[in-house]
Computed example of a mutant assay.
Amino acid sequence: MDLSRSGRVVTAIVVLAVASFVAVGTASPAHADSVRDDAWYLEDLRITEAHRITKGKGVVVAVVDSGVDPTHPDIVGNVLPGVDIFTGEPPARGRDGYTAYHGTAMAGLIAGHGHGPGRRSGVLGIAPEAKILPVKVTRPEGLSTGREVASGIEWALSLGADVISVSLQTPTETLIDRAVKKAWNMGVPVLGATGNDGPSGMQFVRGVIPVTAIGSDGGFVEGLQPMWKPIGVAAPGGDIPTAREGGYWTNTGTSNSAAIAAGVMALIKARYPDDEIAHTYRRIRVTADDRGVGGDDSEYGYGVVNPVAALTEPVPYVSIGASTEPPEPTPSAAARDTSKVPTVVIVGGVGWLAVLLLGAAVGGVVLRARRR
């Protein structure tokens, strides 16, 4: 597949049933009293040990997604007002396009604190003392565009995000490239899902850490997307119990793995707030547990995230000097213009009513946007 700059274009129209919650393979309801027991990734990542060092306090993680339900018992109190990019106001129930199922799931994996006695029930996130900044970029019909995702990243930066998580199927869009470059220059890491059975444009953007998924057996989840270039990391993504409006669901997808890796990044930012971004990226990569053929590879990247190692192991420091672009107080006018661009598909955890792919070529290449 030719993924040169001249051919990196995706044009798609996707209709999403945001009221349903289906991912790759089978998805099934989960109950609050079983969610914690089924959260196999907590033991595999030694989260209890990591939480003795930090729980992410003081870090703001932007979830650029479909909105977040701030009343869910597992994240209540951890959700900031955020913004709906179409109104410039916080996302609100009853407003067109308020579809928080997928975003709520991602928020729980990042910063869920559970509920009940000792908070032993429900979803425990990787960084339960971090704050979630919901940035809603989906339209009423579940659609979003490359320009809107770029706008969401810029809004996240303007509202003080320390980490940005993008569990979306994005096109390869110049505006996204520019928004991520701005995040880099502001020292804000951006993590993106690689995709399920179709690649997301996020993994082709310089400055993004692409994240692919492993299952409970520790192996790469077959059928999901590997990395085009092995520059990212892997994280748990198979059979993950997640929060959703009104309850819980178990699903598989690189959405989950990207959110979990974003939680690990929140722990790193809390522990090492003064690190330059190049060193922050280096820390999550070089402390990852190598899997596969040895060294970086397309199925695991640098390896599976290891929160404890990332927080405790010495990592040779690499300086990039001062940022070259100062932060702006509000998103640019270009980012506010949300028209005439390719469409983005939410990754995993969302049901599809129909998918209609419309081809458009630049340099004669079309990347098909498929279910991820």
Score class of each variant (00 low, 15 high):
K136G: 04
V166D: 01
K181Y: 15
T170Q: 13
S151I: 02
G201E: 06
D197L: 00
M202Y: 09
L159D: 00
T194V: 07
M186H: 15
E173C: 14
V163F: 04
W184D: 12
V166Y: 00
D162E: 05
V180S: 09
W155P: 05
A156P: 12
A193Q: 03
L143E: 14
A161T: 10
V166W: 02
S144L: 13
W155R: 13
P199R: 13
A150R: 07
S158H: 12
G195C: 01
R178F: 12
G152I: 02
E141T: 04
T172P: 08
L159P: 09
M186K: 11
V137Q: 02
F204T: 10
T170Y: 12
S158K: 11
K182T: 15
T145F: 02
D177A: 08
V166K: 05
G201I: 00
L191N: 05
A150V: 09
D197Y: 01
D197S: 06
A156T: 09
A193W: 05
G195Q: 09
S158V: 05
V149S: 00
L191G: 08
A183P: 13
S200I: 03
T170W: 13
N185A: 12
S158R: 15
R139T: 05
S167F: 10
R147S: 14
N185H: 15
I164V: 15
G187A: 06
E173H: 15
G192E: 05
N185E: 15
P199V: 07
S167C: 13
P140R: 02
A179E: 14
V137L: 03
A161R: 12
V180L: 10
S144T: 13
A183E: 11
A183R: 12
E154C: 05
P199Y: 10
V149L: 04
G198F: 03
V190L: 07
A156F: 12
D197N: 02
G192F: 08
K181F: 15
R139Q: 10
D162Q: 11
G195K: 09
M202A: 09
G192V: 03
W184R: 14
L157F: 09
S151W: 01
A193K: 00
E141I: 04
A183V: 07
K181E: 15
V180H: 04
K136V: 01
V137G: 02
I176R: 14
Q169D: 13
G195E: 06
L159K: 09
S151P: 00
V166F: 06
V149R: 04
A193T: 06
I176H: 15
L143K: 06
S151M: 07
L191S: 01
L168G: 09
W184Y: 15
A179I: 12
K181V: 12
E141A: 03
P189G: 10
F204S: 11
V188D: 10
V180F: 10
K181D: 13
V135T: 01
G195F: 06
D177I: 07
V137W: 03
V163R: 08
T194Y: 10
V137P: 04
Q169P: 07
R147I: 00
R147Y: 03
N185P: 07
D197H: 06
S144M: 07
A179Y: 12
V149P: 03
G187S: 08
E154S: 09
D177T: 11
V163W: 10
P140I: 00
T170E: 08
T170M: 14
F204Q: 01
K182F: 11
E148W: 03
K181C: 08
W155V: 07
P199N: 06
S165I: 07
V149Q: 00
T174S: 14
